[in-house]
Computed example of a mutant assay.
Amino acid sequence: MTSKQDKIAFITGVSNQRGIGAAVCRKLASQGINIFFTYWNSDSEWPDIFQSEILEMGVRCEGLQIDLSKFDSYLFLLDEVSKRLGFPSILINNAAHSVDSNYMDLDAKTLDEHYDVNVRATCLLSVEFARRFQKKGRMWGRIINLTSGQELGAMPGNLAYVASKGAISSFTLSLSAELAPLGITVNAVNPGPTDSNWMTEDIRKHLLPKFLMGRIGLPEDAARIIAFLASEDANWITGQIIHSEGGFYRS
């Protein structure tokens, strides 16, 4: 399954117009790849509007609202993708849970909430994707995870998020070794601070001097590197954590 017309990309965490997930869907759809996206806590009308936008690009598109913290969500999701569009060849684990937590307020509930979405859902979606991929005798697949550069420097005030995303970086490396014989590449992207729906004007002013290329990262920047890793051209790249940050300087 190598022609673009046959490819289906499954992207989690596409919940707003300005997010990385939406930018990835648009980029892949522009390349003729069919799209299945998930969302949660989104504006009630936006997912339908977004689906129509992708359909107008000439590909098939389905969306599904789901809480990825649910224990068996990964099984239900892969069943739904297969039923609605067919089995995907590209899995992009973009969904994330993030609540500020420092050493004074970190507790078990906060850790569990981050683990459920950022670690458990990502890991189980990835391995179930690989199991079904193998059973179907496929020869070409992609898993792309999103990380946050937590190994490059301290991220104080965000302890639960850092711990969960750090786990995904390690998981990516070891899973890539197991899945390489199947023809599935496994990589992760750290897009750096990205001006999506979370940045305020004060945050932008604080971050801008740290970007040596003179501007803050945009969702489209992340989408380009993710689309490359999902392409035929990235066939020889696996087990990598790619830091695509525009020269972001940690000082």
Rank of each mutant, 00 (worst) to 15 (best):
K109D: 11
I203L: 13
S15F: 13
P88G: 10
W236E: 02
H206G: 14
S251Y: 15
I237R: 00
F10I: 03
E62K: 13
P219M: 02
K70D: 10
E80P: 15
K135N: 10
V162R: 05
A23H: 04
V186Q: 05
G58I: 05
A223N: 06
V81I: 15
I241G: 03
S69R: 02
P193N: 09
L212V: 06
I242H: 04
K27R: 15
I237A: 02
A22N: 07
G13M: 10
D6V: 03
A227L: 03
G239T: 04
L208R: 06
T238A: 08
D6K: 06
S89E: 13
V59L: 01
S148V: 11
G58A: 09
P181R: 07
F248H: 01
A29G: 06
Q31W: 04
A222R: 04
E201I: 11
G247E: 10
L125W: 09
G157F: 01
L68D: 11
F133W: 05
K27Q: 08
F129G: 04
A121Y: 15
V127L: 06
V119K: 03
Q17H: 09
S231V: 08
I54Q: 01
E201W: 12
I241D: 02
I54E: 00
K165E: 00
D107L: 08
R204C: 04
P219Y: 09
D67T: 02
A9W: 05
S30Q: 08
S196L: 06
S244T: 11
F37H: 10
F37V: 07
V119L: 04
T147A: 00
G149A: 05
E245Y: 15
L77W: 01
G137S: 13
V99G: 05
V14C: 09
A96M: 03
A180S: 14
R132E: 15
